[in-house]
Amino acid sequence: MTPAAVLAATPMSTGEMWVFIPLGILALVGALGMVAARNAVHSALFLVLTMLCLGVFYIVQSGPFLGVAQIIVYTGAIMMLFLFVLMLVGRDASDSLIETLRGQRVAAILLGVGFAGLVCVGLGRALAGTTAKGLAEANSAHGGNVQGLASLLFTRYVFAFEVTSALLITAAVGAMLLAHIERRKGERPTQPEQMRARFAPGNYPAPKAGPGVYATSDSVATAGLLPDGTLAARSIPEILPPRELTSSETAPKGTDR
């Protein structure tokens, strides 16, 4: 019998209690933090905290396999996927403080409190006085939690298991379809096309000149000088002086011969 199995006997042992109280508080803090954090990355990190706590709870409640899976699959894979997407979308995409739906926030909180209250009252009344059997017996029947889960999974729940595999495949293919941007052959410019575009009138084929370096200023906002002494507009970023090429600049210079 593993120590975890011993802990699962009812009621909570003192050790379990000391695990539950701080981690439970931490999990709540993580959950609240996730909802409250304005920055989506912070939200994700708060969620990771909560999930880790839950993983520990699983282990404490005689479910080492689920606990480990929670930590590896959720916090490791899924939450990383979240962070990955967050980075793609732009982590600055934080919520504005202005609520667009009138009364939504207040109503949501009231509803939440009411819902939680109802469920807690219901749970309290329903489960008062029940005794937990503990999983010691079930886990030891097959020689351990993982073996017990495996024997159930591949016997009674084998059909659901197979269906789940189909679901996973479908989800993977679906995600690929959704995320994939298809480029047809014709849409992609060929090398000769790219070269022609580079030397086409209106485009400057050579590398752009760097900004000017002067005794008074070496800012990127100061344009460099051309051999004829005029300022090279192309040497500073486009956003600074929004201007177009003049006709003399777009005229062929004999380089394309």
Binding site: A107, A108, G114, L118, G122, A126
Partner: peptide, 28 residues
Amino acid sequence: QTGFVRSYAMSMLTGALLVVAAFLAVQY
């Protein structure tokens, strides 16, 4: 039908609340 997903979610939660309340009301 505001088009706001969150409004719909709100009505779902309200529904869930009512269902739970009904369950409890019947049960007790």
